[in-house]
Simulated assay, not measured.
Amino acid sequence: MNIVDADVALELASHEGLVRQAYKDSVGVLTWSIGVTNASGHKVDRYIGKPQTLEHCLAVYVWLLEAKYAPAVRSAFKGRSLTKAQFAAALSFHYNTGAIGRADWVKEWVAGDVAGARKAIMNWCTPKEITARRMAERDLFFDGKWSNDGRVTEYIRVTAKMTPDWGSGKRIDARAAIAAALGDKPAAPAPTAAPAPANDNAPAPRGWLAALLALFKRIAA
């Protein structure tokens, strides 16, 4: 079964921005860390005016990837085997759009129409600023071409209007922090590379996810 490992988490993160305190995105949605919103089940209001450590930001991020987003990707491709590159690309697409279960390109690929799927993934380019990300996901899924170098753009300041100060962006190496969140060794650049429970009814975590939750509890204590 495909899992969220360092390569997968870093590839997706490379398409997002990191802000350690809660901010408002381009349409006013309260957001934190790497694209985490209240819709994920992890309430981000607690981070208004309260920047968190990089380790905590990324621990919650990778936990949500595995607990909330990866299951939908696995379900959408049920019965078909995915490479790690394909899983990473599909997970990035779903994290951004929430549409892995209804996207035509997924259905076409599962049905065996690879050429049609490759073309159809580019139908998801609204707003136009997302085009470069969609191209990267396409190239990763269909050609196995990774695009991340282990770094993420962090915006270190938030304005009085709670929007990121875009001029404060800097590239940081996130490999060690991602590896720590996963309880793994630091990842090499991809080839050419405890969070709080999402809700009270979430299933009990197992394996490395349980260890990750234990780590969060120690951090939060």
Rank of each mutant, 00 (worst) to 15 (best):
M1T: 12
I3Q: 10
I3F: 04
I3M: 08
V4A: 10
L10S: 02
E11S: 08
L12F: 01
L12S: 12
L12T: 12
A13Q: 08
H15I: 06
H15P: 00
E16V: 09
G17Y: 11
G17M: 07
G17R: 12
G17D: 05
R20P: 07
Q21D: 12
Y23I: 06
Y23K: 02
K24H: 14
K24N: 11
K24W: 15
S26I: 15
V27L: 13
V27G: 02
G28S: 11
T31V: 12
W32P: 07
W32Y: 15
S33N: 02
S33P: 08
I34V: 15
V36N: 02
T37L: 04
N38P: 04
N38R: 02
N38A: 15
A39Q: 10
A39C: 05
G41N: 07
H42E: 04
H42P: 04
K43P: 02
K43V: 11
R46V: 14
Y47V: 04
G49C: 04
P51D: 03
P51R: 05
P51Q: 05
T53P: 03
E55P: 05
E55F: 03
E55C: 03
C57M: 07
L58K: 06
L58T: 09
L58M: 09
A59G: 15
A59S: 15
V60N: 10
Y61F: 15
V62E: 09
W63Q: 10
W63K: 05
L64N: 12
L65Q: 14
E66W: 03
E66D: 12
K68H: 05
A72N: 07
R74A: 14
R74N: 11
R80V: 13
S81I: 11
L82K: 00
T83C: 00
Q86M: 01
Q86A: 03
F87Y: 14
A89C: 04
S92P: 03
F93N: 03
F93M: 13
N96P: 06
T97Y: 06
A99Y: 08
A99E: 11
I100H: 00
R102T: 15
R102I: 09
W105I: 06
W105D: 04
V106I: 06
E108D: 13
E108L: 15
V110L: 07
V114D: 09
V114E: 13
V114G: 02
V114S: 09
V114I: 12
G116D: 05
G116V: 12
A117D: 02
A117W: 01
R118C: 06
R118E: 14
K119R: 15
M122K: 08
N123I: 01
W124G: 08
K128N: 04
E129V: 15
E129D: 11
E129N: 11
I130F: 05
I130R: 12
I130C: 01
T131A: 11
A132F: 07
R133M: 07
R134L: 14
M135W: 10
M135E: 13
A136C: 09
E137H: 00
R138K: 14
R138N: 13
